[in-house]
Nucleic acid binder design. Structure first.
Lengths: 247, 247
DNA sequence: TCTTTCGAACAGTCAGGTTGTTCGTTAGCG
DNA sequence: CGCTAACGAACAACCTGACTGTTCGAAAGA
């Protein structure tokens, strides 16, 4: 595949700070020309900066790699989690669906259900726009490049104008003590609004997120009704009154 | 191509009312199996209804065929019109861009410009979502199947919350006497709101629309500042105080 | 029951995307 | 200023996925 090499390059450059084209060629087994083309792509995504002979990373510690590189990562766990989440949603419900790769998996599973769905990312909107069975609502907003998560006052206004049965929320970090956290400040306020406009809140969180905390605080763990995760039961969360559903 | 055969089938069935699979096979030169697959696609789009042995048209007179069949039609004229429209827009402007295939061409031409753009259809949103240079705003709303034009109260609210320099409007019919008309009622109110929230209104209209009138009235011709069209100058419009720009 | 149509499954064809190679051009260094 | 290494445009090989046709068992309708 092609994305996997991009991810490999991204990580190698991030870990080393900067790397030469020749190094990356031997590392990945691809030709130097291919590496140059890859670097061009990654530079366009803002992942790294090219200089003559190589590239240096632009990813800060604690910053997440762009959407295109995350989407094919850890697919099994995401799909398992998404399947469980989809099972928690009953026909006829209205659902607000957060941005992120895990929630995109959920969107794919909801495609042929009879629901009203408002996705918070254009990726999910596109995944659902061909569905004949569900009522699709698009929130307004400004899509963040790459991620295509909708943010800003238009998004908040769309959320405040509606009341959903269920919110499916993804996140970048979750723990009983630190609560739900996100990398992006704007995203955080959208998530908060989504939580506020839903009667029931389900968080879809893969194991890696439970050991991490990101910059922007969204909400305390107690505001979640259920957490679907592939990690082994987290006593802290259960103690906070959250139902932890294993995937 | 593949869309052209679908269009051929659509028109043949519409003109005949209903047609057999064998007739369509000889007409198009394709095998019967291929025709069956095509009919399945068209039935899913609501263009026609299948019965054993053939299909009957569901397109009412005066109703437009679905987006997928129109998009590759008359591309030259559309692109010429779109080029002129894009030329009327100055860098730095904020633009609201209507739905429809002609406006989608405009969107493609705006991809690398420095503008703020709010498209009223998801097709145009997708065309612009990869742009690094422009500020993309997505209106809320419910996308109409196929067309993916955003409609409904969320769309109207998004438009009313903003003021644009320019509105680029497509339509289904335009004449000095009947004004600007659209096939869909919901679309018409969205267009009206777009016109109301812009200081300058440009209509992008190919020749075929100038001889036609559709169901839903949008606005009088006098509310347009300019009409870009590939048709020969229309004296009626010019008399109504509209600048007619040839493409 | 019999005939006709349907659609699943497989195979061939074709277009578009990805990769590698070549080679003229360019940036950076001494 | 000249040299060397790196760059990127252009072409060709390869691969994948979409479209199409054929075959054949199943189903619908007379």
């Amino acid at each position: 595949m092609f994305v996997s090499r991009l991810k490999q390059i991204t990580e190698a450059v991030r870990d080393a700070g900067s790397l030469g084209v020749a190094d990356l060629a031997t590392l990945t087994g691809a030709s130097e020309m291919t590496i140059r083309r890859d670097l061009e792509v990654l530079a366009a995504q803002g992942v790294l900066e090219r200089y003559r002979g190589g590239a240096r990373s632009l990813l800060l510690r604690g910053e997440e790699p762009p959407f295109a590189l995350r989407s094919d990562e850890n697919t099994d766990a995401k799909r398992r989690i998404a399947t469980v989440v989809a099972g928690l949603i009953a026909d006829g419900e209205s659902v607000v669906l957060d941005s992120g790769t895990t929630c995109l998996e959920v969107a794919r599973l909801l495609h042929d259900r009879r629901l009203t769905v408002m996705p918070l990312s254009l990726h999910a909107v596109n995944a659902l726009s061909t569905s004949a069975s569900l009522t699709l609502l698009v929130p307004g907003g400004r899509p963040r490049p790459g991620e295509l998560a909708l943010t800003g006052p238009l998004t908040l206004a769309s959320l405040q104008a509606l009341r959903f049965d269920t919110a499916v929320i993804g996140c970048c970090g979750l723990s009983a003590s630190q609560g739900l956290t996100a990398f992006d400040l704007e995203d955080a306020s959208v998530k908060r609004a989504a939580i506020a406009s839903a009667r029931r809140v389900i968080a879809a969180v893969d194991a890696s997120k439970l050991t991490r905390t990101a910059l922007a605080f969204v909400a305390p763990a107690s505001s979640l009704d259920a957490v679907v995760t592939d990690a082994d039961g987290d006593e802290g969360l259960a103690a906070a009154g959250v139902t932890v559903v294993p995937a």
